[in-house]
Amino acid sequence: MGDPAATTPANALVLCTEGLSKSFGGLQATRDVSLSLHRNELHAVIGPNGAGKSTLVNLLAGEFTPSAGRILLEGRDITSLNVWQRTRAGVARSFQRTNIFLPLTVHENVRLAAQARTGTLASLLSRAANSRTLFEITDLAIERVGLTQSRLRPSGELSHGEQRQLEIAMTLATDPKVLLLDEPLAGMGQEEGERISALLKSLARDHAVLLIEHDMDFVFKVADVMTVLVEGAVLASGTPQSVRESAAVQAAYLGGHA
């Protein structure tokens, strides 16, 4: 797998899309979207309801096949890869609605995610228990999201916020280059939000992060780069400052916010 930091610059281009489009029957959910995600960068995508944010994540994660356009991961065309192939290639997502294995403990949830990458038949037939590196990867991911105290608890007993953290830990355990985080703050209180905000900033240091979030104050606080989607198309893209000042964005979306 290697250490990407050793060979690539700190803010190297990791993933980009070229003219990505998706239509469902007559509805065009994504129109000609070209964006790029860099390492050490938190890229937030905002837009009103129905702007195609979730469709974009689903296209990047391989859940949907684009009608047109390409997706490149470190220069390699991954447009035709399906969901699990993309995860193995290094594009991992978290879900808007918490999507974990409720009967399993925190540790078991994360370990399952860590195990996926050793998916050859021979390793599948090894005893599930005994792999040291597996435990290390698992514990590291759990520690990173701050769930070490709860690692042996059944995930069904966790608070909503902790389940969101677990969701991110599972994504981390797949050893991703790109993190697609679909509304990680959904349904969280103020205090939990602060914690996740710090976590996202730390994640962006060694991953390319795409964040979809409704909470505008939060987005302007954490994002390095922002893309505004309206009706499936990119309305504006740039630093939070330039997006805030863009007349088009103010007219179409932000309204009195700025």
Partner: peptide, 12 residues
């Protein structure tokens, strides 16, 4: 338990 999630964490 959750096949969709299994695919998302990289299982074929």
């Amino acid at each position: 338990v959750n096949e969709h999630r299994m695919r998302a964490i990289g299982f074929d």
